[in-house]
């Protein structure tokens, strides 16, 4: 679930408010958005991909991170360059750094990852 919206990086563009499929955020006049309905978060990572400021971290857990979890510690996650990781991985971050982790995919993995049935022509 979404755990971090970094108030320092956030530019109040409200893109996350617009794109979140489950309407987790509320826009705030003259301020950064708030995570208004955390329990509606479906852990889809869309906000992390769309946020142009790399201000968001979505924890992979489909339940809230407990108090003290490192996956709720915005500063530590920012220091490890993990905010906006998904944006980087899908190639939406300008000037992407981690080239080896961001190779272009030329394959339809669903086809080649599924073993063909026995006897089927290859």
């Amino acid at each position: 679930m979404i755990e971090v919206l970094d108030p320092v990086r956030c530019t109040s563009c409200n893109i996350c408010v617009r794109v979140c499929p489950t309407n987790v955020f509320d826009a705030v006049e003259g301020d950064i958005p708030v995570i208004a309905r955390h329990s509606d978060c479906q852990t889809c990572f869309q906000c992390e991909a769309w946020c142009p400021a790399d201000a968001i971290f979505v924890s992979p857990s489909r339940t809230p991170e407990p108090d003290g979890s490192p996956l709720r510690d915005g500063e530590a996650l920012a220091a490890r360059n993990l905010l906006g990781l998904y944006r980087d991985r899908v190639g939406w971050r300008r000037g992407t750094t981690s080239a080896s982790e961001n190779l272009p995919s030329t394959d339809d993995y669903h086809v080649w990852a599924t073993p063909l049935p026995e006897g089927a022509p290859r």
Binding site: P60, Y86, V90, L103, P104, D107
Partner: peptide, 18 residues
């Protein structure tokens, strides 16, 4: 493995975070 990772960026983003 590099190709496999690139083929499913969302899955590998998750395991990398974990």
């Amino acid at each position: 493995r590099a190709r496999v990772r690139a083929g499913m960026p969302n899955f590998f983003m998750v395991v990398d975070k974990l």
